[in-house]
Amino acid sequence: MYPASFDYHTPGSVQEAISLLGKLRDDAKLLAGGHSLIPMMKLRLAQPKHLIDLRKVPGLAGIREDGGSIALGAMTTHWQVESSKLLQAKIPVVSDAAGMIGDPQVRNLGTIGGSLAHADPAADMPAVMIALGVEFVIEGARGRRTVKVDDFFKGLMMTAVGPDEILVEIRVPVPPAGSGAAYLKFPHPASRFAVVGVCAALTVDGKGICTKAGVGVTGAGTKAVRAKGVEAGLAGKALDQAAIEAAAAKAADGVDVQADLQGSAEYKSHLLRVHARRAIEAALGRAKGGK
């Protein structure tokens, strides 16, 4: 409940934050909403010597449409994502998933960028990001670079964001007409993190053939991953029940499922398959419904 001492910095620009990161190195942590970091500091599981708070950096929060994408500033809170009319209209699954994170108070301060850069293996949003095929805009001393979601999650709480870089924006492509997506999770009864979570994003053509499938899974393993087997079972197919079930059966393939108090690896693999099927069914319903 009583974090260790640290020095506190409030840079006024991304560049200033980056140069602080460069100078302070491993002793420093970036602070966005703080809802992943501060609990760890209170238990003294994290004891950074410096905190670099991004709250005074202009331009890091907000949701805007930019060409065929919606750009989410890294400091946009989960509540802003949850309640965004733009997202609800264009990519509702992102708002839906944001509304399942933590609890209302957590969503008011926790940020999408902070959460994604923290890369908790049981976080919700990574599965959605994978399914939608987003891109991450990362800024460092040498300028900005863009990283595709498949190259972003590197391992347990590890991402492509370098030690002196900052995640500044997430670009979510607006799905074409005939698309639908759904995120379903099996929440931990206490923490509300995902024991498993599956996001399915589908596009179907006029004949009911799935032209594009994105499926991301979270919770069960050490990092969120793309369920390639499921996607392969969906793309190019007419999605009848048999096809859906066959595809969903691959949901745990390639996931390093971890056993814990919530269940065995076998059980969690099973949950992944069930949630994949249900998410696909829900996504398909929405795709056919026009969203």
């Binding site: 238990l43 931990h188 009864p189 206490a190 923490s191 108090l261």
Partner: peptide, 11 residues
Amino acid sequence: LLAATMMDYAL
């Protein structure tokens, strides 16, 4: 004790 916080012990 494996359930030693309110994140683990489900009230």
